[in-house]
Simulated assay, not measured.
Amino acid sequence: MLADGLHVLFCGINPGLMSGATGHHFARPGNRFWPVLHASGFTPRQLHPSEQRELLSYGLGITNVAARTTARADELTGEELRAGGRMLLEKVERYGPRWLAVVGVTAYRVAFGDRHARVGPQERTVGSTRVWVLPNPSGLNAHWSAAAMAEEFGRLREAAGLPVA
Rank of each mutant, 00 (worst) to 15 (best):
V103M: 10
S57M: 09
I62Q: 03
N64D: 14
R53V: 01
A147H: 11
A160R: 01
L88V: 12
A66G: 07
R98K: 11
F42L: 04
S145D: 12
R157H: 08
T106S: 10
H116I: 12
S57E: 15
R98Y: 06
D74S: 06
Y58P: 01
A147Q: 14
G113A: 08
G59H: 07
L56T: 09
L134N: 07
A101T: 03
Q46F: 05
S138N: 06
T77R: 06
F42Q: 03
G12E: 10
G12Y: 04
Q46E: 15
P121V: 02
V8H: 08
P135T: 08
P35N: 06
F153A: 10
G61T: 06
V164H: 15
E152N: 11
G139Y: 15
L2S: 05
N64R: 10
A71N: 05
S145A: 10
A73W: 06
G78F: 14
A148M: 13
A142I: 14
E54I: 02
G104K: 01
M149D: 04
P163V: 03
V105S: 10
V65P: 00
A107C: 05
W144S: 04
L6I: 05
E123C: 05
R98D: 12
D114A: 14
R115M: 13
T129W: 13
E79F: 12
T77Y: 15
A73C: 02
L76T: 08
P97W: 05
G61K: 06
S40M: 00
G5V: 06
V92R: 09
P44V: 07
R118K: 15
P49D: 03
G16F: 00
W99V: 00
V131E: 15
A101R: 04
V105C: 10
S40G: 04
T70W: 02
V119Q: 11
T77D: 15
G161T: 02
R115T: 06
E93A: 12
G84K: 12
A3K: 11
A142L: 11
